[in-house]
Simulated scan of single mutants.
Amino acid sequence: MEADLYDEFGNYIGPELDSDDDEDDLDAEDRDIDERDEDEDDDPGDEDENVPGMEVVLHEDKKYYPTAEEVYGPEVETIVQEEDTQPLTEPIIKPVKHKQFTLMEQELPATVYDMEFLADLMDGTELIRNVTLCGHLHHGKTCFVDCLIEQTHPEIRKRDDVDLRYTDILFTEQERGVGIKSTPVTMVLPDSREKSYLFNIMDTPGFVY
């Protein structure tokens, strides 16, 4: 029977079959009916006018975040603080720390020494400390050295309220009031236990030269 439906070349010669176009037409009609139903449901006359989110709200009346009372309740006390009024390094609630220490009064060790004692300390390398004073211009490097000189050599004092500037040995340095070259100075300084150390202090200028 199937041989009567096809010719010798395999072409179909039987009765006409239902085409897919008819099914597409039916599907298109069903879609049109569904769209008409949706349009009827979306009729603006049937909508409620009190739908939230559709009303006009002014910018100053907008509310972006809930208040602290709405989040935590009215019975919770809240503290509102402006931005950058307190540094991040300082906590809002500081921890309670009980400091335990004892106060001891101790006399400062003597800082005056003899040149022979200084020369003897040069033999012990474990007692020698090399220190360099670095900093910007006019930050007090030379004045710090002057304070050490006055502390260890009472006979050297500034006169007529003029800065000592002990390490400014050049005439141009004294005239300009600024260090130009690095100047070393050696002195003996004790610690709190009256143990003396030999300090080689280098006073440097506060600029590149």
Rank of each mutant, 00 (worst) to 15 (best):
M1S: 13
M1I: 13
A3G: 03
L5D: 12
Y6T: 02
E8K: 06
E8T: 12
F9T: 12
E16C: 01
D18Y: 10
S19W: 09
D21M: 14
E23D: 11
D25C: 09
D30G: 00
D30A: 01
R31P: 10
D34T: 00
D41Q: 01
D43T: 00
D43F: 02
P44G: 07
D46P: 00
E47R: 13
E47G: 11
D48H: 09
N50P: 04
V51I: 13
P52L: 03
V56W: 07
V57H: 10
K63W: 15
Y64T: 10
P66N: 02
E69L: 04
V71T: 01
V71K: 00
Y72V: 06
V76D: 05
V76M: 08
V76F: 02
E77F: 03
T78S: 11
I79P: 00
E82I: 06
T85A: 14
T85I: 15
T85S: 15
L88Q: 03
P91N: 07
I92K: 12
I92L: 13
K94S: 08
V96G: 08
T102G: 14
E105Y: 09
P109R: 12
P109W: 15
P109D: 10
A110C: 14
A110V: 15
V112T: 08
Y113W: 09
M115P: 06
L121C: 13
M122P: 01
G124A: 13
G124K: 09
L127M: 13
R129S: 02
C134W: 09
G135T: 12
G135Q: 09
H138R: 14
H138G: 13
H138P: 04
G140I: 10
K141N: 09
F144N: 00
V145T: 08
D146M: 05
L148T: 11
Q151L: 13
I156P: 05
K158R: 15
R159N: 04
V162A: 11
V162W: 06
L164V: 05
T167G: 05
L170W: 01
F171Y: 10
F171N: 04
T172F: 05
E175W: 01
G177V: 11
K181A: 09
K181N: 04
P184D: 03
V185Q: 09
V188E: 01
S192T: 05
E194T: 11
S196L: 03
L198W: 02
I201T: 09
M202W: 12
D203W: 08
D203L: 08
G206W: 00
F207P: 03
